[in-house]
Amino acid sequence: MEKLKNFINGKAVDSTSGETSSLINPSTGAAYATAPKSNAADVDAAFSAASDAFVGWRDSTPSQRQRALLKIADAIEDRQSEIIEIESRNTGKPISLTTSEEVPPMVDQIRFFAGAARNLEGKSAGEYMPGMTSMIRREPIGVIGQVTPWNYPMMMAVWKWAPAIAAGNTVVLKPSDTTPASTVWMANVMSEFLPAGVFNVVCGERETGRSVVEHKRPDMVSITGSVGAGIQVAQSAATQLKRVHLELGGKAPVVVFADADLPAAAEAIAIAGYFNAGQDCTAATRVIVQESVYDDFVALLTEQAKVIAIGAPDEDVFLGPVNNANQLARVAGFLERVPSHATV
């Protein structure tokens, strides 16, 4: 069985506790790997490495940071077959869609932030008061603690670390406990192009994430998660005056009016609802339809649902399994709570 490790200060290391959790392949329901259950000592070590690395990385030039990110993007692109296989096995995502819809934009996003590193904007220096010159100087924030979700593990990791590192910050990232594999892989690839300690990964469960967020060292914490988790992070950060970046859950509605192209709307909404097994912050989870076309639209959307290709990741399918047992129970709960007037 594969054994994942944390990545701290440029090295793959076990948790100091020696404890691990099993990673489940959603397509088979079988455990295929173990990941560390990181504790406070592991989180301390990661933040210590990031803090030490920040001293040098903050003084790197935009061109140096840009070159590093461009090399990382090239390396991931060159080895994309590896990360696609890892991501699919860890999430159950269809290989074809991961190849076409996730890797290209993810690599492009790294390159975007590489370019952004050299194009910071701000007001010009000037004399706004007699005898005084005012200017704005942009500096890295410092050490950033980050927590990513399980629905887009590799892409959400990129959305966290790429802008932070491009701006001269260092990072400690805690991936979801069910999907850490692609993030650990990225850390190993990135280590060839970054100084030790600039990017660190600690695996673990909810307590590990709490330790990352509540640790005294990070100057900023960033999470993608539920509204409840965001509230807790904001409350914790307030006591230490940390900066926060919160990307929280939503309930995306779609409105269909009577003059819409109903077949086109049904097709688009089905794609929006079922892409990534509906595990998306912008998934079409509610459809509000004008009453005069309600029955017609329900019929069209039903037909679209019937033709969605479902199957294993290595098949030509659109819809694979949900990510984990908790998510499966949540989806099943919607059906169990269907009101009596509804038809399933």
Rank of each mutant, 00 (worst) to 15 (best):
L194W: 08
V198H: 04
G197A: 07
S134D: 11
H215L: 02
E127H: 15
A157I: 08
P149W: 01
M156C: 02
H215T: 01
P163M: 06
R210L: 09
A237N: 04
V171N: 05
P175F: 06
Y128C: 13
R217H: 14
G126M: 06
L173I: 14
M156V: 06
T133W: 12
S176N: 11
I144Q: 06
L173E: 04
V227Y: 12
V202A: 07
A187R: 00
N169G: 06
C203W: 00
V147M: 05
W150M: 07
P130K: 11
N119I: 08
M156Y: 00
G126R: 10
G122Q: 03
T183R: 03
G209I: 00
P163Q: 07
E139V: 13
N151T: 04
A162M: 04
I141A: 08
R118A: 12
G126I: 06
I223F: 09
I165K: 09
R206W: 05
C203Y: 03
A229G: 13
E127K: 14
V172Q: 02
K160C: 00
E139Q: 13
M190E: 09
W150S: 10
V172E: 02
V227L: 14
R118S: 14
E127P: 10
T133M: 15
V184A: 12
T178L: 06
L120H: 12
I141F: 07
E127A: 15
G197P: 02
G209C: 07
L194E: 01
V213L: 11
P149S: 15
G126K: 09
I231W: 11
M186I: 12
M135T: 12
T178G: 01
S191E: 05
A187I: 03
E192S: 15
N188F: 01
M154H: 11
V221C: 11
V143S: 10
A117W: 07
S134T: 12
V143T: 13
M132F: 14
V227R: 13
I231N: 08
A229T: 14
E205C: 09
L194M: 08
V233C: 00
G230W: 00
S176L: 01
D219C: 15
E121S: 15
V158G: 02
R206L: 07
N188Y: 03
P130D: 11
E214P: 01
Q235N: 14
A117G: 11
R138D: 03
A229Y: 06
M132C: 11
R118F: 09
N188L: 01
Y128D: 15
Y152C: 05
V233F: 00
H215N: 07
P175Q: 07
W161P: 01
M186K: 01
